[in-house]
Design a protein around this nucleic acid. Structure first.
Length: 507
RNA sequence: GGAGCGUUGGUCAAGGGGUUAAGACACCUCCCUUUCACGGAGGAAUCACGGGUUCGAUUCCCGUACGCUCUACCA
């Protein structure tokens, strides 16, 4: 199969570090993993890569799971959901890694290095293009340059050390990337990466290989920033578990900032006024709040749809996809190689499309809550009707506040300024008569109300056009919203008449 | 600096040796709407540049330019 699946059960993983809020790129990585797994009837596992204790941030892990939940991307296995390959936190798997690092040392594929951070810094300053590799390692303090006895001595004395992979000189490492095709690196160009840190924790390089093996991962999709270190991972697979067991790789393109160049960062969002995180993130140290797409009023359907479209399309021209449709139509080979600039306008368009597309019942409760926060009590009898009437003018869920509030609460500041200049006694009389007519109406439906309105305006020798705006201002408070007669129909007789009277009294 | 990856309208992109080079977003004009939206019609590209290969290249090859990523005991 061209997408790299074979008879093995497909298993993918998303492996985030709990260092803060999940940004767009991270969620898209999850999405593509998820889509691929589900399309092949496989498993989606979430593994927490918390090997760097200095960067650990409290709450970040919970945040990741809340994000997945909101997006509807449920893991089959994770620290939260459990699973047969537990534990799913690398910090809890610490003992597993050292064994493999030791094995590599024993086989001459890796070595102990005793250089201190200061010594490394000094070398980096001294030698331009410093790379801890074949050209330099002979001049450093490690088990390759030290005698066996010296190394033993340092180890026995408890001297801090790291284990580095010993890269062969001038050897080609090839692998097939599902998105990019064959990728080739020469080992002389990559350095002897640290595998095991002085604190006994593995680096990403060792951990990702060991865990992918132990968790029987078949496909590994990650951001493009990992491409340069891929040869180290391939070599580790070759040394430890065999290339035939190595997962298929796919390196996803980056999401770029809308203006200028470079990958999108949280700072760009702050600067340009759009979210980059899925949900609100509160920095536990500074208490600084970063707004998320959810709180900004995005629907999860729109959020993931927009994310998928950033780098993938099915070639048909279709742009709006549900999660199920994406599972059905996704193809890793149709993912772009080049990065895409993030376009917030397009993101908003997706949201509006989804607000229109989805039955309002799917977000009605949430809108009701948003309204309540603004002190607007919506009654369930006609909320659905109201939302249906105004949904096509909402880009964000929060827009329902402005678009729907007048149904539940008369405007406190009706825009009488825009009707006053042309206001006269004739119009005043018309509305007084309208009140009377509407009081006597036997039915209260939009079409009938419109007929009565027009008949009355004709009887008064007024153009309905001159009266529509005042009527709208009376009911709505401003120059916006659905058809006035539909509004009146929903408001009901009492409320409609009361609003006409009220504005009349102000004119 | 080195290595890797990339480059189709302002943005996302389809396409792929011979086409009027799809579509969407944004923008502008018009229509619809006696409001605002929705909707509809119209408007923009010497396919980064230079060489090849070819009857023919945006599409294949090689360079160049530009951009990005990596170059940590971070992921």
């Amino acid at each position: 199969m061209t997408d790299g699946t074979n008879d093995k059960k497909v298993r993918v993983r998303f492996a985030p570090s709990p260092t803060g809020g999940l940004h767009l790129g991270g969620v898209r990585t999850v999405l593509f993993n998820y889509l691929f797994a589900k399309q092949h009837g496989g498993d989606f596992v979430v593994r927490i890569e918390d090997t760097d204790q200095t960067r650990f941030v409290a709450g970040a892990e919970d945040y990741i799971f809340e994000t997945l939940k909101w997006c509807g991307l449920t893991p089959d296995e994770s620290p939260l959901h459990g699973g047969p390959f537990a534990p799913y936190r690398q910090s809890e798997r610490k003992p597993m890694y050292k064994e493999f690092a030791d094995k590599l040392v024993k086989e001459g594929k890796a070595y102990y290095a005793f250089d201190t951070a200061e010594e490394l810094d000094a070398k980096r300053k001294e030698i331009s293009n410093f790379q801890y590799g074949h050209a330099i390692r002979g001049a450093m303090k490690n088990s390759l340059t030290l005698s066996a006895a010296e190394t033993e001595g340092l180890l026995a004395a408890g001297t801090p050390y790291v284990i580095r992979i010993l890269l062969p000189e001038n050897e080609e490492v090839k692998f097939t990337d599902l998105i990019r095709g064959e990728v080739v690196f020469n080992t002389s160009q990559v350095d002897d990466k640290v595998l095991l840190k002085a604190d006994g924790m593995p680096t990403y390089h060792l951990a990702v290989v060991v865990d992918d093996y132990k968790m029987e991962i078949t496909h590994a999709f990650r951001g493009e920033e990992w491409l340069p270190s891929a040869p180290v991972h391939v070599l580790l697979w070759k040394y430890l578990f065999g290339l035939e067991n190595m997962p298929q790789w796919a390196h996803l393109p980056l999401i770029l900032k809308p203006d200028g160049n470079g990958k999108l960062s949280k700072r760009d969002g702050d600067r340009l006024g759009f979210p980059t995180f899925a949900l609100d993130w509160i920095d536990p140290k500074t208490n600084e709040i970063t707004t998320g797409f959810r709180e900004r009023g995005f629907l999860p359907e729109a959020f993931i749809n927009m994310l998928a479209a950033l780098g993938w399309n099915d070639g048909s021209g279709q742009e709006v996809f549900s999660l199920d449709e994406m599972v059905d139509k996704f193809s890793i080979e149709r993912v772009h190689k080049g990065g895409a600039k993030f376009d917030y306008e397009k993101a908003k368009w997706y949201n509006q499309e989804w607000i229109k597309k989805l039955p309002v019942s799917t977000y009605q409760a949430q809108v009701k809550e948003i309204l309540a926060e603004k002190g607007i009590v919506a009654n369930d009898d006609n909320l659905e009707q109201v939302l249906n009437l105004v949904k096509e003018r909402c880009v964000f869920l929060n827009d329902f506040v402005e678009q729907a509030r007048f149904f539940f609460k008369p405007s406190e500041t009706p825009d009488i300024a825009s009707i006053q200049p042309k206001w006269d006694e004739k119009k005043n009389m018309f509305f007084i008569e309208l009140i009377r007519a509407y009081e006597l109406s036997t039915v209260w439906e939009a079409a009938d109300l419109e007929v009565e309105f027009k008949e009355l305006s004709a009887a008064n020798q007024l153009k309905p056009g001159e009266l529509m705006l005042p009527f709208r201002i009376m009911l709505v408070g401003g120059k916006f919203g659905p058809g006035v007669f539909e509004i009146a129909a929903i408001l009901g007789r009492d409320e409609t008449l009361s609003r006409i009277r009220h504005v009349l009294s102000l004119l």
